[in-house]
Simulated scan of single mutants.
Amino acid sequence: MKKPIRTPLSAEQLADAKRLHDIYKKRAKESREDPSRPVLTQTEVGERCEWKSPQSTVSQYMTGKVALNLEALVKLSEALDFEPAEVSPTLAAGIRRASSPAHPDHEAPAANSPLPVSADVPESEDDRYAFVPQYDAKAAAGLGSENPHVEIRSTLAFKRDWLKVKGAKADQLIVIYAEGQSMWPTINDRDVLLIDRSRVEPVDRQVFVLAGVDGAIVKRLIQGPFGKWILRSDNDDKDQHPDRYFVRSDENEHRIIGQVIWRGGDL
């Protein structure tokens, strides 16, 4: 049987692997210099990450034989005590590592904090985070944004405790991007939007992503008279961003994709 052909890693991915290897060497050297601590090995790191082939998996990530992914980066950041952006700025965009368990004086996590910033350490990282698919689709905060071809770019990690508080299930969530300024100041151009696809019933004054003949849009729904709903922009310039009506019917041009339950972006 022929061995599968692996796609060569990019220069950026190889740089990630080297930075990871350098951090491991530094941590291993620190462990050798401290007689009170056992010497850190690749096997120990892999076991902390709860991988079935601990040494082999760690070695492949550090030598650039296998490209790092977001889930592996989060696990390794905990095992080796580093911030994800120190190894992979690209993968780390939009997440923050949980605080190291080596610092017990850290405050307990806030349940309303969505990204990994807590100090609690569960049995495994899979129990701690939900990895939500991040699509390159855009929802226009303005006129519709067409998405004829949509791909998954990566994933974003969200705390499961926070999702539970929000009443959201990970398998119903997707991440997309906003485009335009009609929802400013609530949502800015290029903000990350977490969408709950299970919430397709309109709720007064909540923000939803809708699909229509002119593409995907993100608007606030306002309950109007006679069973009508208004698609409203948060931007006060109503000449540029007027209200539109939304009627629940098979003939209606818009269909609710899901409710926006979180946004992330530049201040």
Rank of each mutant, 00 (worst) to 15 (best):
F208D: 03
I176T: 09
P116D: 10
L156S: 02
R48G: 07
E12S: 01
E86W: 06
I257Y: 02
K159A: 08
E78W: 10
I230Q: 02
S36D: 15
I195E: 04
R160Y: 04
D243V: 05
N235W: 07
P225M: 02
M62T: 09
A168M: 10
V213Q: 14
S10Q: 00
V87F: 04
L76A: 04
A178R: 01
D266I: 13
R205L: 08
N235L: 11
D16P: 00
E107C: 09
L193K: 03
S249G: 14
D250I: 06
G142E: 02
S154H: 12
S198T: 11
T155C: 06
K219L: 00
E44C: 02
A102T: 14
H149W: 09
G142M: 01
L20M: 12
L70Q: 08
P122V: 10
S56Q: 12
R197M: 13
V247T: 15
S100N: 12
E78S: 03
V207T: 15
Q55L: 06
L91K: 07
S145K: 03
R248T: 12
H21D: 14
R248C: 09
V39P: 04
T186V: 11
Q172V: 04
V45K: 02
K25D: 13
Q259T: 07
I174L: 14
D239N: 15
Q240D: 11
I230V: 13
A211Q: 10
Y129V: 05
S198G: 11
N147M: 00
H254V: 06
I152V: 15
L210I: 03
S182E: 01
E71G: 06
W162L: 08
E30K: 15
L143M: 12
V121F: 12
V45Q: 02
V121I: 13
V132W: 01
F226H: 14
L73G: 05
D191W: 09
V218I: 08
L221S: 11
R96Y: 07
V132C: 08
D191Q: 01
A170W: 02
I261A: 02
P109M: 14
R160Q: 14
